[in-house]
Design a binder for these strands. Structure first.
Lengths: 160, 160
DNA sequence: AAAGAGACGTTATTCTATTACTCTTTTGCC
DNA sequence: GGCAAAAGAGTAATAGAATAACGTCTCTTT
């Protein structure tokens, strides 16, 4: 079902590499362990331009290891990455994407193209603030936000 | 796992009743059929103060019918109700809630209390507009919004 | 009455995620 | 270095969410 998508050629492998380096540094600073497995999972998530399902990751790991990996292996790694802000989960897709700004805690907003399936992470304080303000009108205290927008990205709209 | 929650006594059954009447009228107007099954599923969703899982609905139907219903039965009814704007799906919970404003097409924002699990539907143009504006900054055209907020509702915050 | 469409039943399967238990590796401490 | 404790990872089984494929029934509509 999931077709691997062409990379914009420019520097994607370099992006992945720098994301991994940043993750290394961040984990060292936090005193948590970015093990080989966790790092590999993070790399796979970053390599994909689209949100990646746990079982997609599982399939890759199984193939490269010979022995077929089991779900908990992947889910544990993903839990670690989520806890440490290195990836985000897209609830509406049951999938995961690398976080663009792992250096500070946040919950992004996601723009998901229905055409190319790319997920763009947004961090617009105006959106968060509108939500907090809206919630306050009914006395609700916001603790976490899930904002997932589907539509057409700029590239796909032009192409159409 | 899911504990049935106490109703605010006031007039909940009347709320459900009026929601169903409204659904009847709306379906008649649209020329679509709110069959007994679909109506029953809608009633169950409305009766619950919390987002209801498809398999919760399935369990109730199975119990009251004697013969155990199968998933497609419920999912088809839910699909119909979704298409006609009578219920909303909460992606982050894999669950469904009755729509408060079925009379006009819209996509609400949902406030989900982590304590009592109640879902409050919000319809704040300011939030939608902030999202559309934010998306526009990267050339993204919004077609659908999933906004699901977790936190504490007013009642639970007071109780704490 | 016959045809066609829509709704529903039934079985099986896929996809997503977790539980429970074991074994290994790493780490901190002496 | 050696050792206990803790963290990480393997494994098997299962739970939970959703869909596919096919058949049957029941309405209209003609």
């Amino acid at each position: 079902m999931k077709t691997p998508l062409a990379c914009r050629p420019h520097d994607h492998s370099r992006c992945v590499h720098s994301a991994l380096s940043e993750a290394d540094a961040l984990c060292a600073r936090q005193g948590v362990r970015l093990t080989a497995l966790r790092r590999r999972v993070l790399e796979l998530v970053w390599q994909s331009h689209k949100p990646l399902g746990a079982y997609d990751i599982l399939a890759v790991l199984s193939e490269e290891d010979g022995r077929r990996a089991a779900p908990p292996t992947v889910y544990r790694a993903l839990d670690f990455l989520l806890e440490n802000g290195l990836v985000h989960r897209i609830a509406s897709l049951n999938a995961f994407v690398g976080c663009n700004h792992p250096e500070h805690a946040h919950q992004g907003q996601f723009l998901i193209c229905r055409q190319c399936h790319t997920a763009i992470e947004l961090e617009q304080p105006a959106i968060s603030e509108a939500i907090v303000a809206g919630a306050r009108t009914v006395g609700f205290t916001v603790e976490g936000q899930t904002v997932e927008i589907v539509g057409l990205c700029a590239a796909c709209r032009e192409a159409a």
